[in-house]
Design a protein around this nucleic acid. Structure first.
Lengths: 245, 245
DNA sequence: CGAAGGGTTGATCAATTTCAATCGCGGTGG
DNA sequence: CCACCGCGATTGAAATTGATCAACCCTTCG
């Protein structure tokens, strides 16, 4: 049974048996991180490429004021930048949110893999483009959406990404995220997140509680969020379970 | 005299004469865009890679409500994503802010150049990493900085980037940006931008007027912004004029 | 059993938007 | 040459959103 990383790349390009074998090899000895453990910190010299095989992680930055901003969530199968090693210093930190299993791929190994396996390179570049699009979508949310729209939008995104990554069974999706973490991701206070979640619940759009998201009225949720899934480029992928339906 | 793109890449890696020759060739027939003209729109099928040789451009997205969010500024020498052609649909638009001269490099030509000129590939990947870091820095600003900090931060960024791109003579830097565009980039209203600019002027930190930025007290400005230039990774580059002075 | 870390709620405060006018300048047609 | 127009800049006042401050609750875990 292939790991989440291999599964994800297979969804982005048609890989040969040798391609898969190489991917299996470079992810064969993953490292485990505890929840809240930093994988690498701002200011550190970057080394290997991080690939999350299981669990959730995030990119974040702490400001002088002590507040934190999360800039991205990494779900199973997601990787940090492929060329991370080219820079002399990390400009942000990576942290496990849940206990996580992470493959560390040395820069040279990554380079030769990209060089010798064009299909892998193709899938990984696509994946990176999608990550970048997600970054841009976050900017749009933070800049121009009200807090309820912002929360709804992130929920839509995580709902789809989580299903794509984990392949969840039914209407209820596990998002192992505290309200505090949502606050750090959305640039709001935990207090306000809490109130907005209540509002969304009372509107009958969705209910989030104890790490589990239940989408009650998908159409309403998408509408509130002004959500347009095109930035996730799911058309690139094989199977796709919808949010609209 | 090499164009801005070549100059920028030379700042990121040591290029050979053949490297430079190839770069000159692929940028030899640029296209001109008028101010406010779209280069490509959300939903369009991506084609060639865009490289801005002269003038300013931006990435943006229009929301259903009609508001606009700018996600990045492209200065002379800056390029859009190298692998843009891999996706089936643009998830945002590109627009010239000023009249701009732009090289369009076909995907195949780009691919073979990256393949055959490792130094160019190196420089371009570094450049892309820096662009991504800038994206993340914007998220941090939008999420966790007050409006005065946010404005000050963007001014610091554009001051340094503009000098790096254009090589400006003295204390006064040309930023061909209206207050409306700043508002669209910072997720604020033009009215509020105006008031914040006044405040920064009255504090004696900087003065922005008619497309020209004068940094009056660099230390004060950096302090207000909580600006840490590490995300621009200027250490990667050759010459560097400071903001701290 | 006690402590810690979320989660929840109310009351108040502050930042930013919204609405509404006015101003100024560069360009254009008469 | 000059009045007019359109767009960006500027300012004031009112309305709104979200943050802050302060409790208190609940569950988990050592």
């Amino acid at each position: 049974m292939a790991n989440r990383f291999v599964q994800k790349l297979e969804g982005l390009a048609t890989l040969s048996a040798p391609d898969v074998a190489v991917l299996e090899r470079v992810t064969a000895s993953p490292r485990d991180y505890a929840a809240k453990q930093d994988m690498i910190r701002e200011g550190d010299r970057p080394g290997p490429v991080f690939v999350v095989l299981d669990g959730w992680a995030c990119r974040y930055k702490i400001l002088p004021s002590g507040t934190r901003q999360i800039m991205a969530f990494l779900l199973p199968g997601d990787a940090c930048d492929l060329h991370i090693g080219m820079l002399s210093e990390m400009d942000h930190s990576l942290q496990a949110i849940t206990p996580a299993r992470v493959a560390l791929i040395p820069g040279e190994e990554m380079a030769s893999m990209l060089d010798q396996h064009p299909r892998i390179a193709n899938a990984m570049y696509k994946s990176q483009l999608i990550d970048e699009g997600t970054l841009r979508a976050w900017i749009v949310s933070m800049g121009r959406r009200s807090s309820i729209e912002r929360v709804a939008h992130l929920m839509c995104e995580l709902y789809l990404r989580s299903i794509a990554a984990i392949g969840t069974p039914e209407g209820e999706v596990a998002l192992p995220i505290s309200q505090i973490i949502f606050a750090d991701a959305l640039g709001m206070t935990p207090v306000h997140i809490n109130r907005i979640l209540r509002e969304l619940r009372e509107m009958g759009a969705m209910a989030f509680s104890r790490g589990s998201l239940r989408v009650i009225d998908p159409i309403k949720l998408v509408q509130i969020a002004g959500f347009d899934e095109n930035y996730l480029h799911r058309r690139q992928r094989q199977q796709r379970a919808g949010l609209q339906a």
